[in-house]
């Protein structure tokens, strides 16, 4: 019990003192996950919008598939990206395995389906409501899709935040493709896993506290944005 209290104390000191190692790990985590979420949004949002407003063969199948991909296990994503990037793999010549770039790729693969599937849902709901009105006002498909994205921007932002939270909290994929190399590819989750097994509780706990705080802040932010948007725009 005593050692636990001590560990907490030490963890707080690390956070409060902006410990170098801790700061570096947190920094890389944010950098990797933010980059991944930006790329995932740039890919996933147009896909979601397209599926929402277009009617084509196999659409329903695609939606089911996309929804299923939302539940992709991070370790499986890690494994697949590892196989692609490993020396013998098709993208092995890039030589990016065990670099932050590989981690960005893995997290992008992980959260793009989430952003695509959830934005499809939101934009399609809006589409049902807006469809006739927008056509009546003279909007073509592309205009309409842009209008829908703009009008649902606050709901879409909460999806992006959720994607970011999922990326930052994920451990399996970055562990496999990043290799958890000290000072190079260590992020919060992989460091927590490693330090815990090594018995260095203060750093693990310190990172755990930062991670949980981050998740809470993201969710609070999402709630505040929704609330504000609702009051401001109805």
């Amino acid at each position: 019990m005593n050692s636990l209290v001590e560990a907490f104390g030490a963890a707080w000191r690390l956070i409060a003192g902006f410990d170098d190692e801790l700061a570096q790990v947190v920094g890389l985590s944010l950098q990797v996950s933010l980059t991944a979420v930006v790329i995932a949004t740039l890919i996933g949002l147009p896909i979601g919008a397209m599926i929402a407003v277009e009617r084509f063969r196999g659409r329903q199948t695609l939606i089911v598939l996309l929804n299923a991909l939302m539940g992709l296990p991070p370790v499986v994503v890690g494994l697949v990206v590892y196989l692609l990037l490993s020396r013998a793999g098709p993208l092995g010549s890039l030589g990016i395995l065990f670099t932050p770039t590989a981690m960005v790729i893995a997290q992008t693969v992980l959260i793009t389906p989430i952003i695509a599937a959830l934005s499809r849902q939101i934009i399609e709901d809006a589409w049902r409501e807006y469809d006739e009105q927008l056509r009546s006002l003279g909007a073509q498909r592309l205009n309409a899709a842009m209008t829908l994205i703009w009008d649902t921007r606050f709901s879409l932002l909460t999806i992006v935040l959720a994607g970011f939270g999922r990326a930052a909290a994920e451990v399996g994929a970055v562990m496999i493709v990043g290799g958890n190399i000290a000072g190079v590819t260590r992020v919060m989750t992989t460091t927590i896993a490693l330090e815990t097994s090594k018995g260095d509780l203060p750093l693990a706990l310190g990172l755990g506290i930062v991670l949980i705080t981050l998740v809470i802040v993201l969710n609070a932010l999402a709630a505040v944005i929704r609330e504000m948007a609702l009051r401001r725009y109805g």
């Binding site: 009105q133 009546s136 209008t147 703009w150 009008d151």
Partner: peptide
Amino acid sequence: QAMVFQRPVMLRR
């Protein structure tokens, strides 16, 4: 042509 719907949809702006 233009139309005013029975339940008009207002854009969020």
